[in-house]
Design a protein around this nucleic acid. Structure first.
Lengths: 148, 148
DNA sequence: GGATAATAGTTAGCAAGAGTAACCATATAA
DNA sequence: TTATATGGTTACTCTTGCTAACTATTATCC
C-alpha cells in the first residue's frame, strides 16, 4: 500500500502518476527521433495511424478520438496535404471535409511502420504479451475515467 | 497476439503504444486543470514533487532524472523562485546551484497534494491496488528500456 | 418559410514546454 | 599552466496545444 522513500510515505496512486509523467518525455523524444528519419512528427504520425486503421475521416472525428481541439487537427492535416500523404474526398455535406490517405501516404505509413515496430519491440523488451495486454486494458480504463 | 480491426491485424505492441499516446493528452489536460487551481503547471509541479521527496538538488540532477535538457529546468526553477517556492542553498562548488523548497513551497506542495490525490483516486477508479503496482513496475521497465 | 441553432472547419494569436548552440564561470586533470 | 570537464544561463527556434472569433452550411422550431 505505502512505500517509504526518504521517510515520506508514498501512496501507490501517487507513484503510478509520477511514473506515467516520467515515462512520457523520454518516450516522445525517442519516438520523434524515429519519426524524424522519415521527416514526420508525432502529431502527424498519429493521424496517419488513425486514417490507416479507420479509412476516410473528418476533422471532428479525429479531434474527438485524440481528445484535442479542431484547430490542432486542421494544422496537422494541412501539413500532411502539403506532403501529399492525405487528400480530401467528398463527404455527406458541403461543410464536411472528409480526409483519407493517398497511395503515397499509404506507402509512407507502411514504411514508417517498420521503423516504429522495431522501436516498440525494443522498449517492450522483457514485458510479456500477457503483461502488455493487461496494461493496455488498464490504460484504456484510465482514459475512460478521465474522459467520462 | 493479434487483434483484428477493420480487417487489419494489430500487434499488441502497436496497440500498447497507441494507447500510451492516446492517454497522455487527456491526462495532461486534466492534470493542468487541477494545477491551475493553484496557479501551477505540470513542469513546475514535477519539480516541487522531486524536491519534496529528494531534498536539495541541482539543475543537473533534476534534468537527468526527468530526462530533459538543462535549460528546460533552469526556466522552470526561475519561475518557482519568483513565486518564492524554492530557494538557492550553498552547494559543494561555486558552480553548483543547489535548490530546495522554501517553507512556503513546502506548504504549497502539501496543499496541492490534496487536490492531486483526489484527481489520482478519481482516474484510478476500478483499478485495484495490485494492478496499479503491476503497472508501475511495467512503466518503470519501459522507461529503463528507453533510457538504457 | 424564415429566423435561430447547431455543426464543420478555418484563421489568428498566444502559451507551455522542449530542444540546440553558444556562452560564462569554476573546477579538475594532464 | 594549459586544456578539458562540469554546472548553469541566454537566446532562439520548434512542436503542439489552446481559445476566440469567424465563415459556410445544415437542421430545427415556431
Amino acid at each position: 500500500m505505502l512505500t517509504i522513500k526518504g521517510g515520506i510515505p508514498i501512496k501507490s496512486s501517487q507513484k503510478f502518476f509520477h511514473q506515467l509523467i516520467l515515462l512520457y518525455r523520454p518516450f516522445e523524444n525517442r519516438l520523434n527521433i524515429e519519426l524524424n528519419k522519415h521527416e514526420l512528427h508525432r502529431a502527424q504520425w498519429t493521424i496517419l495511424y488513425y486514417l490507416f486503421h479507420n479509412g476516410s475521416s473528418t476533422n471532428v472525428e479525429i479531434a474527438h478520438y485524440q481528445g484535442v481541439e479542431k484547430p490542432t487537427i486542421t494544422r496537422t492535416i494541412i501539413s500532411l496535404e502539403e506532403k501529399d500523404y492525405v487528400k480530401q474526398v467528398k463527404g455527406k455535406d458541403r461543410r464536411e471535409k472528409r480526409i483519407q490517405l493517398t497511395p503515397k501516404g499509404m506507402a509512407v505509413y507502411e514504411s514508417v511502420r517498420i521503423t516504429i515496430d522495431e522501436f516498440e519491440e525494443e522498449i517492450l523488451t522483457g514485458i510479456s504479451e500477457q503483461e502488455q495486454q493487461e496494461t493496455i486494458r488498464i490504460l484504456e480504463a484510465i482514459r475512460k475515467n478521465i474522459m467520462n
